[in-house]
Amino acid sequence: MTDARAHLTELALALGFEVTGWADAAPRADELGVYQGWLDSGRQAGMDYLTRQLPRRTDLSSSLPGVGSVLVLGVSHAFAPQPVPAGGVRLGRVARYAWTPDYHAQLEPLLERLRLEAASLGVRARGYVDHGPILERALAGRAFPGWQGKSGMLLSTTLGAFTTLAVLLTDLPAPEPAPLHPDRCGTCTRCIAACPTNAIGPDRLIDARLCLSALSIEHRGPLPWELRPSLGEWLFGCDLCSEVCPWSVRAGPLARLFVPDPELAHPDLRRFFGTSEREFQRQFSHTAFSRPRRKGMARNAVNVAGNLRLPEGLEILRLASSDPAWEVREAAAWAWGQWQNVAEVERLLNDPVAEVAGAARRVLDSGG
């Protein structure tokens, strides 16, 4: 069995994974207690599927009967800055992991290759990227050198915080537990200070109700009014806590398996308007932008235009004012208010959707 683990580890590294390690598939009581407490406190926001999946996350045999050990795999998405393509309206920032085509689609064939190799060794296996009911960060903290930083992210002295995780569940016996990596955060609190909404708790857990990443990707409907300014220039996701981490700074650009695309790092915001959801998915289904869907990306683009108040953003606001999605028009009312453009806000007072007209009235009543 040791030979099987070594063989699969060697293959994973050959396929391009940058860090690997083995962990016992049985969850630890302290890990489950922390996760249950996070759910009980409501910090998962509207991601109710996390609560529904709890029984599966606490029992990995529901995903692979007879599971004994897990091969945890890490890939860096610490990309170097990308050039801004010519043309278009290219405002806002995108989280680094979304600079490359959907990492699920890139990693799943590699996991399948590992599964087939495991089968040739008489080992049953099943791979997951992070959309499976797995507590990947907890497993990773036990599998290879790393620890849960004060930001809640898995940190590594070699990869920093920009690490994408995947796992291969196997029916190999549980490995001997490895010593936990020492906490290297020390007295540093740069990640906490960098978070504009104080989403990082003292228990190193994230409040998704405040996290800019969760708001711009997972949140459906209008963004919370009071948090819109805090989103600043973030169009999709947020990297602030990971960017300022000294271990990320020390690691520098590392990504080798993933290749960044400047058109994803700096998308033309106009592409989120004047198109159907079907056409949007045709263009972006291979990217992380498909998660919030067209109207979510358009809403975010409007929020960025409202916060930055740069001349090129005016085209986005004009498109948004007549967008078929009321959530986008509602965002436009707020954004025009940031520009102090009373005439455009007043036009939206006549919108047939109450939420849009209400947003316009709220802007006018508040003086902008």
Rank of each mutant, 00 (worst) to 15 (best):
A98S: 13
W339T: 00
F273C: 05
L155E: 08
P246S: 12
S290H: 11
S120C: 00
A23G: 06
L215A: 07
G358Y: 03
T2Q: 15
A140Q: 03
P260N: 12
H286P: 03
A265F: 08
R184Q: 14
A98T: 08
S62N: 12
D59G: 03
E233P: 00
L314Y: 03
T287A: 00
E10N: 07
L71K: 03
H131L: 13
A119R: 14
A174T: 02
C185T: 12
L64C: 10
A193F: 03
D351Y: 10
R347H: 11
F289M: 10
T20Q: 11
T170M: 01
T157M: 12
G221F: 06
V123I: 05
E136T: 04
W99A: 07
Y35R: 11
D130Q: 02
F162E: 09
P83G: 12
A354T: 12
M153G: 06
R57M: 14
P65M: 02
P85L: 10
E31W: 15
V167P: 03
T170I: 09
E312Q: 15
H286G: 14
D323C: 00
S63D: 13
E346R: 15
V328P: 02
G132L: 02
V19Y: 02
A118E: 09
L50K: 10
Q338T: 01
S213C: 02
P177S: 06
D268F: 05
V328Y: 00
R318A: 03
C188L: 00
N198Q: 15
L159R: 06
R318E: 14
G127M: 04
V72Y: 01
R271A: 15
P55K: 06
W99H: 13
N303T: 13
P101I: 11
V244Q: 07
P173S: 05
H219C: 04
A343S: 14
E18N: 04
H181D: 14
A332P: 05
D30S: 13
T9D: 15
R184A: 15
L348Y: 05
L169Y: 08
T158Y: 10
D59P: 05
E315N: 01
P55Y: 00
E315C: 07
R115K: 14
L165N: 07
A118L: 07
V249I: 13
R43D: 09
A194Y: 06
I200K: 09
L215T: 06
L154S: 10
E108P: 01
